[in-house]
Design a protein around this nucleic acid. Structure first.
Length: 258
DNA sequence: ATGGCAGGCTATGCCTGA
């Protein structure tokens, strides 16, 4: 059984103690991190290695930044979407044992519908879709996970009426996600028994976590070849209640690979 | 209707996040 996880840590520098604590508790085999906000030369590699993990990362100062932690080394590192030059560090992919390809994404937030950042989000998703289409041919065993900044359906946000047409739920970004799913990728949370009102992000403001005013925007997608191997997908909301938490909770999928 | 909290920067308010 492999435990494949994703967590937007909102600053790896600040969240390193919580990350090390969570690694001890959950012992994931592969963990995708987003919003590390740290340049590669400052990545806390020694602390991660001391915890028993390999690391691949693509960071930048202040914003964005992604990393893959793993029990076993990863190969064939990719840190850019092909034919899409972008200074923003939002993707890191690698191959692990049994030809399992892992793509970690930090999808742009989109600011507000119609803004330049929203257009960037849609363009980025289109580029991601093209890349994943090609990747699925080469790697039938594919998992795509990370902060998608999209709540797939109205079930995935606490108050759909209040969010109508806004970023995270707007029709165009949901359509872009559906296009990715239509390639043959499946939201693992919906492959298993999925309780209502389960979210992965809660605003820091207005006691949103306490009131469970959240959204499920952190996803773990599995390719069709892996669907029958997915045994669980849970959102571990406990670290969201720790001291000085990230605003996102980790998501963990169990995959039975023979 | 608005703003609220948190992180990072070279800042001591402003930008970004979602």
């Amino acid at each position: 059984m492999l435990k494949i996880a994703t967590w937007n840590v909102n600053s790896l520098r600040v969240r390193l103690p919580q990350l090390l604590q969570w690694l001890t508790l959950q012992q994931p085999d592969i963990l995708a991190l987003q919003e590390t906000k740290i340049q590669d030369q400052h990545f806390p590699l020694l602390e991660i290695q001391a915890a028993g993990y390999h690391a691949l990362f693509s960071g930048q100062k202040t914003y964005n930044g992604v990393a893959l932690l793993s029990r076993y080394p990863g190969f064939d590192l990719l840190t850019d979407l092909p034919n899409y030059p972008d200074e923003q560090r939002r993707v890191v992919a690698a191959t692990y044992e049994d030809q399992l390809r892992i793509v970690n994404v930090y999808v742009p937030n989109g600011a507000s519908v119609g803004s330049a950042k929203y257009e960037y989000k849609l363009t980025w998703l289109k580029q991601l879709s093209q890349y994943l289409q090609a990747t699925l041919i080469r790697y039938p065993r594919l998992m795509v996970l990370g902060d998608f900044n999209i709540a797939p359906t109205d079930q995935d946000i606490y108050d759909p009426a209040n969010w109508e047409e806004a970023v995270l739920v707007s029709p165009l970004e949901r359509a872009a996600l559906q296009e990715i799913l239509a390639l043959g990728l499946h939201d693992t949370f919906r492959l298993v028994d999925s309780p209502l009102n389960t979210f992965s992000w809660w605003d820091y403001r207005a006691a949103a976590f306490k009131r469970n005013h959240g959204a499920r925007i952190d996803l773990i997608l599995a390719s069709t070849a892996l669907v029958s191997s997915v045994t669980s997908c849970i959102i571990d909301s406990i670290p969201r209640g720790w001291e000085r938490p990230s605003d996102h909770a980790p998501v963990v999928a169990g995959v039975q690979i023979n």
